[in-house]
Simulated assay, not measured.
Amino acid sequence: MADKPVLSVSIVTPDGRVYEQKGDFLIVTTSYAPMGILPNHVPVLATLKVDEVRFKHDGEQDRIAVNGGFIEFSNNVATIVADSAERQGDIDVSRAQSAQERAKKAIEKAKAEKDPDNLARAEVALRRAINRINVANH
């Protein structure tokens, strides 16, 4: 009897590998929609939104806050290259909450000054902070 196929997932950032695991089911949020990947899924290359990556293995589920990037999947190997990523247990919630407050203030300032470039940067910073907080609190 053949062995059950498994997924191999690796998340890397410019600072190095953040996560590596083998398991059953990967969930990512692409720029189009959430996507679930099971073993033997068709090849995929897609950009990722600022959101959590969930990976099920050995009856557990890992959550990783991913800040953009892309996923490449083929031959049961998923590689996620992200601007930054943090495992659920590594997230400093108070630091993320401080970043959220700074981003909110920056958004208000950019709106008052009618500065679309700073507004866009502040909105991305806010999404990243909220993502980190949400992943940490699951």
Rank of each mutant, 00 (worst) to 15 (best):
P39A: 13
N40V: 06
H41V: 07
V42C: 11
P43N: 12
V44N: 03
V44P: 02
L45H: 12
L45E: 11
A46D: 10
A46E: 12
L48S: 10
L48V: 15
L48T: 10
L48H: 09
K49A: 15
V50P: 00
D51R: 07
D51K: 06
D51A: 15
V53K: 00
V53Y: 06
V53N: 01
R54Q: 11
H57T: 11
H57P: 00
D58A: 14
D58C: 05
D58M: 13
G59P: 03
E60T: 05
Q61K: 13
Q61G: 03
D62C: 03
D62L: 04
R63K: 03
R63Q: 04
A65K: 02
V66W: 04
G68S: 04
G68P: 01
G69D: 02
G69R: 00
F70L: 13
F70V: 10
I71G: 02
I71E: 02
E72W: 11
F73G: 03
F73W: 13
N75D: 13
N75S: 13
N75Q: 09
N75F: 07
V77G: 07
V77S: 11
T79K: 09
V81M: 09
D83V: 07
R87L: 15
Q88G: 03
Q88A: 08
G89R: 12
G89H: 14
G89Q: 14
G89C: 14
I91M: 05
D92K: 00
D92E: 07
V93C: 06
V93T: 08
R95S: 07
R95Y: 08
R95A: 15
A96E: 02
Q97S: 15
Q97R: 15
S98P: 00
S98M: 09
Q100K: 15
Q100S: 12
Q100A: 15
E101Y: 05
E101V: 08
R102V: 04
K104C: 05
K104A: 06
A106F: 11
I107E: 04
I107C: 05
E108Y: 03
A110C: 10
K111C: 05
K111G: 07
A112F: 10
E113H: 10
K114C: 06
K114I: 09
D115M: 08
D117F: 15
D117N: 12
N118K: 11
L119K: 12
A120K: 05
A120Q: 05
A120D: 04
A122G: 08
E123I: 03
V124M: 04
A125E: 01
A129T: 03
